[in-house]
């Protein structure tokens, strides 16, 4: 028996909008720790890892570990029927091949349940090692989205370079090239407007902008984004999901032939 009640249902709506472009089908895993998902895009270049900790739910019942295969486009269709202020409850019985999404309006005057068929998905679970990153950049998520969007009108790839001067996003294309430098800036009115750069050593990596732009679909989840870079690892682009968890996007770099 599974029953997860999320008072801030809009978080789940935003989570689905954040990942459905990148991943078509995925297993949602339920355990005592929380509600999670790990999936790669169809070309195995990017990986998304979602965790919503059990403590973040108003009610969290998961009698045994459960993996539920879902088509994310269909989940998104179901969740779009929930109001932004609705409380969302996920329910599934043991051995059932369906999951039910229950939507309650804040004053309880409308209660809807949508039942969705589950699917069998063969997915590989990857071990993601704890790692030391050469540079970690925390910046406003809207700023990062703007940079990725702007650069993708010039080129297909972005070079992200972190030095003591700041973080530089560069691209080049047929019509020309572009460089955007963001310097550390902590003298702002609100902490979420700060750009904070922690650098152990300089790092410079090249990534496909198409994926970066896809990751920025998570922007509505959080005012800030954290970009962790290491020359030996995929970049991690992380958006917090309120105080209950995160979405982490991993993207393998492009390297010189």
């Amino acid at each position: 028996m599974l029953e997860l009640r999320l008072v801030q249902g809009s978080l789940l709506k935003k989570v689905l909008e954040a990942i459905k472009e990148l991943v078509t089908d995925a297993n949602f895993d339920c355990s005592a720790t929380g509600f999670s998902l790990q999936a790669m895009d169809s070309s195995h270049v990017a990986l998304v890892a979602l965790l919503l900790r059990s403590e973040g739910f108003e009610h969290y019942r998961c009698d045994r570990n459960l993996s539920m295969g879902m088509n994310l486009n269909n989940v998104s269709k179901m969740l779009r029927c929930a109001g932004n202020d609705d409380i969302i409850t996920l329910k599934a019985d043991d051995g059932s091949d369906t999951v039910t999404f229950m939507f309650e309006s804040p004053n309880q005057d409308k209660i809807a349940d949508f039942e969705m068929k589950l699917m069998d998905i063969d997915s590989e679970h990857l071990g993601i090692p704890e790692a030391e990153y050469h540079a970690i950049v925390k910046m406003p998520s809207a700023e990062f989205a703007r940079i990725c969007k702007d650069l993708s009108s010039i080129g297909d790839t972005v070079v992200i370079s972190v030095t003591k001067e700041g973080v530089k996003f560069s691209t080049r294309g047929d019509i020309g090239n572009a460089n955007i430098v963001c310097r550390q800036n902590t003298t702002v009115d609100k902490p979420e407007e700060a750009t904070i750069i922690e650098m152990q050593e300089p790092v410079s990596l090249t990534f496909a902008l198409r994926y970066m732009n896809s990751f920025t679909k998570a922007t509505p989840l959080s005012n800030t984004v954290t970009i962790s870079l290491s020359s030996e690892l995929p970049v991690v682009v992380e958006y917090k999901v309120a105080d209950m968890g995160y979405i982490r996007f991993y993207l393998a770099p492009k390297i010189e032939d």
């Binding site: 790669m40 071990g127 995929p234 393998a252 770099p253 010189e256 032939d257």
Partner: peptide, 14 residues
């Protein structure tokens, strides 16, 4: 000429 690396070049199956 850049090669797009894959996630599986870095992370192993559990």
């Amino acid at each position: 000429p850049c090669i797009q690396k894959k996630i599986l070049d870095y992370f192993c199956r559990d």
